[in-house]
């Protein structure tokens, strides 16, 4: 009892120390705060990336290298989940929980109406990512949520996760190759491969890359909740 009180006391002291460090850092923030990058993006962003949305411009052009590795982390995490949840004897888990569970009819009707709308909205978010808030990562998550609705309609539905995962791997390789194309046209990797200064031509790259990343994220999240739903049965 006494030792737990001492432990909590030390913990709270440590957290207070962290809070103090943060407080004094904030006091001197005026000296450290630098708006150079912000002004640079504001002045040159549209010219360099041809993207109206600066956030999309940054993760598809200035910092494409980061985005590729973040897509790679996604792939590794999904592979880990599939590998951990694997059962060697066939893929039959014990299927009796399904008998107790039946989706209400009203919910099924409503889901059937909502499903195509969500799919179209997700695709709109992906394709329009360079003009309005959105992009591959967000749109992919919305598309994955739309696919999740299918599983609510039909709880018996099952998809092969290894098939989804192999498509995702292929899409990832296509992303990497597509990002490295610019070494032939511009001499540097991981930037927009089109040399034309026309904004319409450069937009092709942004839309294609957004669609590829969107497909990859949607497939990854789909594989994740398929593995979880299979575990939940």
């Amino acid at each position: 009892m006494v030792s737990s009180v001492i432990k909590h006391g030390f913990l709270i002291l440590l957290l207070l120390f962290l809070f103090g460090v943060f407080y004094f850092t904030m006091e001197e923030l005026d000296i450290m705060y630098d708006t150079f990058a912000k002004r640079y993006y504001l002045l040159n962003g549209l010219e360099d990336t041809a993207s109206m949305n600066l956030v999309t411009g940054i993760y598809l052009d200035y910092r494409l290298f980061d985005s590729i590795f973040e897509a790679g982390i996604l792939l590794i995490a999904v592979s880990g989940i599939i590998w951990i949840s694997k059962h060697d004897i066939e893929e039959h888990n014990v299927h009796f929980m399904l008998d107790k569970f039946k989706t209400p009819d009203l919910f099924v009707m409503f889901a059937r109406v909502v499903y195509p709308l969500m799919l179209v909205f997700g695709f709109y978010i992906i394709v329009n990512g360079h003009l309005s808030p959105g992009g591959g990562f967000q749109g992919g998550a919305i598309v994955a949520t739309a696919i999740l609705i299918l599983y609510y309609i039909d709880p018996n539905k099952d998809t092969s996760t290894s098939f989804i995962l192999s498509i995702e791997k292929i899409v990832f390789i296509i992303i990497v190759v597509f990002a490295m194309l610019s070494i032939f046209t511009k001499g540097t990797m991981f930037t927009n491969p089109f040399t034309s200064s026309d904004a319409g031509v450069q937009t092709i790259y942004l839309v294609l890359m957004n669609v590829l990343i969107g497909v990859k994220v949607a497939l990854g999240l789909w594989a994740i909740f398929t593995a979880f739903l299979r575990e939940g049965r």
Binding site: T35, A37, K38, Y41, L42, G45, L54, V55, G57, I58, Y59, R63, D66, S67, E70, I73, L74, A77, V78, I81, G135, F137, Q138, G140, A141, V217, G220, L221, I224
Partner: peptide
């Protein structure tokens, strides 16, 4: 005047990676 777009671009990926 705009807000700094760089943290936003990094945080989008963080949310998706965090969920996985």
């Amino acid at each position: 005047n705009i807000v700094d777009p760089l943290p936003q671009a990094l945080m989008i990926t963080t949310i998706v990676i965090g969920s996985t």
